[in-house]
Design a protein around this nucleic acid. Structure first.
Length: 423
RNA sequence: GCAGAGGUCGCCUAGCCCGGUAUGGCGCCGGCCUUGAAAGCCGGUGAGCAUCGCUCACGGGGGUUCAAAUCCCUCCCUCUGCGCCA
């Protein structure tokens, strides 16, 4: 959510940004109109309440002095008949303003490339080597079967499609990936945190696009609770309504959770296996910092993610999201896309976002400055998302005999095994 | 889950019984003093609208009242004890 000062002082910048995104400006216009209405109503209400308080004090004084209070009580009646109506209108104007404000996206960083969809994204770098297998590479889904690494049918029987049992070596490999990511990030100063896996609606509205409630999050029946879609959400919302001490910044966390996603409307051949699932473990990087530090820390988050994939020797590329594909919350976003040989495509495994003040404003999170308070920036990036990284390992590390080489940094958590063997 | 006690400004705290301008301390910021610092003294230190100033804010919501931190109802959270439990 943008600051009201931005709507009041520089609406042109907001309109220009919406233009870049190819979005219409009605929500922003509603914010500005409702805000003006709210301000004049609040002013009127304040004057009315001021009179009320004054007369109330006079009544107190008159009673003490033993004077007649009847004329004052009559004045009060006249005043009070107008207040409820006015207060209702004021609340309605504020509600309209802020509902519209929630729908206005973050302002884009100047560096964000133009573009109206995924085609406009810009490749910045490639890492690793795409193997020349010398045989027809299997899909990760086929490999899960030959390695007996997952049981999708029975998972569907008890929970539904897009759920899975990870079994044997794959289960251990998931834990290895989690340990590997936590170890690297902890060494680099990111405090590991296991958050609540559910959040209430009010807290959740601070960190996501409102459409996500219908498209992404599972709601717990009969409770005001939603399963988290990523640990970014509780980690960022954690300091909601708080004033942070500047010397504690930047806060650097490494979130550790299972994530739950409804994936409404998702479909497609390439989504088979464990690529797109309702539940997966993820080690997430989260940073809360001063605005002047966020660009550099965004680079740091990206570098951490690059190192994590590079040390696994996976082939991947770095892509910058364009204006038409970046989404509501981020001001700038990079994705890492792993090469998937079975389909011959780059596919998203990591996303690193600088959300600038957008989440902090919604969360009412500030930090202390010499003059008062200021709004911090929030950033997040994947460390390792287990299922997609597992899929990328399976496909890229497969060998002619059907075995899959275990990336060296993971072996110490796999009993020093060198490969996963066919069942 | 049951019972009791609590929730007041960044932190701590008075006020609540008995309704009438939110008390004091700590921390922080500024000033005075000082070679510099500490101590001491003075002032500032929640939010909104507004070019004096006004309004709102005592966990959230509602009610009673001319007037609510204070009285009533309700919900949330914390602590203590009991119960249940990996």
């Amino acid at each position: 959510m943008l600051e009201m000062a931005q709507f009041r002082d520089s609406p042109a910048a907001i309109f220009a940004d919406l233009e870049r995104r190819g979005l219409d400006r009605t929500a922003a216009e509603t914010v500005i109109a409702a805000d003006e209405r709210w301000r004049s109503l609040i002013d009127e209400g304040n004057k009315l309440r001021s009179d009320r308080n004054r007369i109330s004090r006079e009544i107190g004084g008159a009673k003490k002095a033993g004077d007649d209070t009847e004329p004052l009580l009559e004045q009060m009646q006249a005043l009070k008949s107008r207040l409820p109506q006015l207060e209702q209108e004021t609340a309605a104007a504020l509600a309209e303003r802020d509902a519209a404000r929630m729908r206005v996206p973050n302002l884009l960083d100047e560096a964000v490339p133009q573009g109206d969809g995924p085609g406009g994204n810009v490749e910045l770098a490639q890492h690793g080597d795409r193997s020349d297998f010398g045989f027809e590479p299997k899909s990760h889904n086929e490999l899960l079967e030959t390695l007996a690494g997952a049981d999708l049918e029975r998972a569907a029987k008890i929970a539904g499609r897009r759920f899975y049992f990870l079994t044997g070596g794959l289960a251990r490999l998931e834990l290895a990936l989690v340990n590997y990511a936590v170890e690297l990030l902890a060494e680099r100063g990111y405090e590991p945190v296991v958050p609540p896996f559910v959040m209430n609606r009010e807290a959740y509205e601070g960190v996501v696009d409102l459409g996500d409630f219908e498209e992404v999050m599972y709601k717990i029946e009969d409770h005001d609770l939603y399963l988290i879609a990523t640990s970014e959400h509780p980690l960022t919302a954690r300091f909601r309504d708080e004033i942070l001490e500047p010397k504690s910044l930047p806060l650097k966390f490494c979130g550790l959770s299972t994530n739950f996603r409804r994936e409404v409307g998702a479909h497609g051949l390439s989504d088979r296996g464990i690529w797109r699932v309702h539940q997966f473990a993820k080690v997430e990087q989260v940073v809360i910092c001063k605005p002047e530090d966020s660009a550099a820390l965004h680079e740091e988050l990206l570098q951490n993610a690059v190192d994590l994939l590079a040390r696994l020797e996976l082939p991947f590329r770095v892509v910058e999201m364009c204006a038409g594909d970046i989404g509501t919350v981020a001001a700038r976003k990079f994705d890492l896309e792993a090469w998937m040989p079975s389909v011959g495509e780059w596919k998203e495994v990591v996303s690193a976002s600088n959300c600038t003040a957008y989440q902090s404003v919604r969360l009412n999170m500030r930090y202390r400055t010499p003059d008062g308070t200021a709004t911090p920036h929030t950033l997040n990036a994947t460390g390792i998302a287990t299922t997609r990284t597992l899929a990328a390992i399976l496909e890229n590390c497969q060998r002619a005999d059907g075995s899959v080489a275990i990336p060296k940094p993971l072996r110490k958590w796999m009993g020093d095994a060198e490969a996963l063997l066919p069942a």
